[in-house]
């Protein structure tokens, strides 16, 4: 009994028990092998992470500097009569939605020396910036990081989820499929980041 001391419990297994143990060990081995096999067949979660240093003078980390440069270069500007609107010496960016997220058309971003188009996505309280316009069938390397607290990158309706940590840049290779019919994808935050806005935190991706 479970509550009394057994006299001699070191007994060999019955046939049924032996079969079960072999079966579950076999299943365990199959499951163990599936993950590396997945890698072998090209499914790597991510192999590149960069860790960014914090610049105490500027009060931001390197990712923010890179990100701000990226936005200044490639974000869509507001035009009036074909001319760019300047506000306080800087071009005014076109924005979308109540969180005023800038938009970047990825087709104007040139390929880097490694042959890929590198895009930068920042998770902030409370939005994902910028909104990308992507092309079908083209591969992009998207750098995801956070400016402040931890955020969850959740691409809907595909249900692709990653964790965005401040100070770390998660590089994910993504390609909108050539047969993809959907034009609008939403990015939802699924890591708690603040009681006033976590549930409102959203981003978008458009596929042309």
């Amino acid at each position: 009994m479970a509550i009394f001391t057994p006299k001699n419990w070191w007994k060999p297994l019955h046939r049924g028990e032996k079969i079960w143990v072999y079966v579950i060990i076999g299943w365990g081995i199959i499951m163990t092998v599936m993950m590396p096999l997945g890698h072998f067949w090209g499914q790597n979660v991510s192999q590149t992470t960069y860790k960014y240093k914090f610049n105490p003078e500027k009060g931001i980390n390197e990712f923010e500097t890179i990100f701000n440069n990226f936005i200044n270069k490639y974000a869509e500007k507001e035009l009036v009569d074909g001319k760019v609107v300047i506000v306080e010496g800087k071009p005014k960016l076109k924005t979308e939605g109540p969180s005023m997220i800038p938009i970047v058309d990825a087709s104007i971003v040139p390929k880097s020396s490694d042959g890929y188009v590198h895009l930068f996505l920042a998770a902030q309280t409370y939005r994902f910036s910028p909104i990308f316009k992507l092309e079908r069938g083209k591969e992009y390397k998207i750098h995801i990081s956070s400016f402040d607290v931890q955020h969850g990158f959740s691409l809907q309706p595909l249900n692709i989820n990653y964790q965005a940590l401040p100070g770390y840049d998660f590089v994910i290779t993504m390609k909108p499929r050539s047969d993809e019919k959907l034009k609008v994808f939403n990015i939802v935050c699924n890591e708690f980041c603040g009681s006033s806005g976590h549930h409102t935190m959203i981003g978008k991706m458009y596929v042309k």
Binding site: N8, K11, P12, H14, R15, G16, I19, W20
Partner: peptide
């Protein structure tokens, strides 16, 4: 006490459930 050579499975119901 060794049931090492039993041919039948003593707990067929549990085996099915498993």
């Amino acid at each position: 006490m060794s049931n090492h050579d039993e041919k039948e499975i003593k707990t067929p119901g549990t085996f099915v459930l498993a």
